[in-house]
Computed example of a mutant assay.
Amino acid sequence: MNKTELIDAMAADAGISKAAAKKSLESFLSNVEGALKKGDRVSLVGFGSWSVSERAAREGRNPQTGKTIKIAAKKVVKFKAGSDLGKAVN
């Protein structure tokens, strides 16, 4: 399912226009992004939670040449599925 299909499904389920569903989805995404930028954790009970984790700098290898390269440290977003979502998938 892509973003357009999700918007269509949200509009049909909620009985609202596609424009309203799109605005709601974009608001949700921007609020999650904003919270993660601040370092906060976003948790939806039963669905899952998003958090930010630090990945340390490390050395890697270029697979084509075999030369060692330096990989910079960075922050990564992690998602952990909630119990209800896990049960629904299985």
Score class of each variant (00 low, 15 high):
Arg55Asn: 05
Trp50Ala: 09
Ala72Leu: 06
Lys67Val: 14
Lys87Asn: 09
Ala88Phe: 05
Leu6Ala: 11
Asn31Trp: 05
Ala21Asp: 03
Ala88Trp: 05
Arg61Ser: 04
Val77Pro: 12
Val42Met: 08
Leu36Ala: 07
Ser27Val: 05
Ser30His: 08
Asp8His: 09
Thr4Arg: 13
Gly60Ser: 04
Ser43Tyr: 01
Gly66Phe: 01
Arg41Trp: 02
Lys74Ala: 07
Arg58Cys: 04
Arg58Thr: 03
Ala57Trp: 01
Leu25Glu: 01
Val76Ala: 15
Ser30Leu: 07
Ser17Asp: 10
Gly46Ala: 08
Ala12Met: 10
Trp50Leu: 09
Ser43Ala: 12
Leu29Glu: 14
Leu29Pro: 01
Lys74Trp: 00
Asn62Pro: 01
Arg61Asp: 05
Val76Gly: 05
Ser27Gly: 12
Thr65Gly: 06
Lys74Pro: 00
Lys67Ala: 15
Trp50Asn: 08
Ile69Gly: 12
Lys37Arg: 14
Gly39Lys: 10
Lys67Gln: 15
Phe28Ser: 11
Met10Gln: 05
Asn90Phe: 00
Ala12Thr: 11
Thr68Arg: 15
Phe47Glu: 08
Thr65Met: 08
Ser53Met: 12
Lys75His: 03
Lys87Leu: 05
Ala11Glu: 00
Phe79Pro: 07
Ile7Thr: 04
Gly34Tyr: 02
Gly48Glu: 10
Ala9Gln: 12
Asp84Gly: 04
Phe28Met: 15
Ala19Phe: 00
